[in-house]
């Protein structure tokens, strides 16, 4: 069965290996150079996705798999994007209600209603 396995020129692995180091250094640099706000988040995400993409595509050989496998593994993760999006929505709302009722004090406690 060995002939059916994933066999690729070793050069590709060294190239990706090198790129991963570069991207890691890049995201490290984002921190040292002190980028702030959107630029920082954007760069972190870009480097993260690049690294993840290269690991999955080359090291895990997904680039060379047939589309049937690629889609079967990648499409279900869309559910996670839905979860993430909706939970971000929800978290914003929860924070807003907290500020509204407790003034952002995490130790505030809802008191029982006064009984007469």
């Amino acid at each position: 069965m060995a002939s059916q396995g994933q066999q690729h020129p070793i050069k590709v692995y060294f190239l990706v290996w090198f790129l991963l180091f570069v991207f890691s250094a890049g995201s490290y640099y984002v921190d040292i150079a002190g980028f702030e706000g959107m630029a920082r988040w954007f760069l972190i995400l870009v480097f993260m996705l690049l690294k993840a993409g290269f690991i999955v595509a080359v090291f895990m050989h997904m680039k060379w798999e047939r589309p049937a496998l690629i889609l079967a593994i990648l499409l279900p993760t869309l559910f996670l994007l839905v979860l993430m999006y909706l939970m971000a929505f929800e978290a914003d709302y929860a924070y807003a209600t907290r500020v509204l009722y407790f003034g952002a004090d995490p130790n505030a406690v809802a008191l029982p209603p006064v009984t007469h």
């Binding site: 130790n107 406690v109 008191l111």
Partner: peptide, 17 residues
């Protein structure tokens, strides 16, 4: 953060939802 049986428990800021 929660008061249970008159006692302020050692929790704070969690999200039950």
């Amino acid at each position: 953060a929660i008061v249970s049986l008159g006692e302020h428990l050692e929790y704070s800021g969690g999200q039950p939802l």
